[in-house]
């Protein structure tokens, strides 16, 4: 299974994301490749999340390529930098994307802070 599908299925399985407890709205991610567009639709209600693949109208619509999103979903690319670069576009309520971006995973190779004389923090 690809990282994108894993990412959304994991969200769907949990059904609740505490970091989005103050967030309500709908966000659609359009992954365009040639004539094909794959959709992921998130309905967020105070942290409760429903995931579907419907092409529904949403408060925020994010557009990018499946390849870039695959990298974002696996933590190897950064969502905000991709927006600044124009590699990912947002229309509608940008605030929602900034909130949802926080639940994208970190880089799997990140070391994180280390304690010098004791055990590692992670």
């Amino acid at each position: 299974m690809d990282a994108t599908t894993r990412f959304f299925e994991e969200i769907d399985r949990r059904g609740y994301e505490p970091r989005l407890a103050k967030t309500t709205g709908s966000l659609r991610i359009d992954l365009q490749e040639g004539p094909r567009t794959m959709h992921w639709f998130l309905k967020i209600d105070h942290g409760r999340i429903e995931v579907s693949q419907q092409n529904q109208e949403a408060d925020t619509v994010v557009g990018t390529s499946p390849q870039l999103f695959e990298e974002i979903a696996s933590g190897r690319e950064h969502g905000i930098a991709a927006i600044l670069r124009g590699d990912m576009t947002v229309s509608g309520d940008a605030r929602l994307l900034v909130q949802v971006e926080r639940i994208f995973p970190g880089n799997p190779d990140a070391r994180g802070p280390r304690r010098r004389f004791q055990q590692e923090v992670r």
Partner: peptide, 15 residues
């Protein structure tokens, strides 16, 4: 608060 760190990112020194 809305941009508070959520993950480890060594490039951005995020925790």
């Amino acid at each position: 608060a809305s941009l508070q760190g959520t993950r480890f990112d060594d490039f951005r020194d995020e925790d």
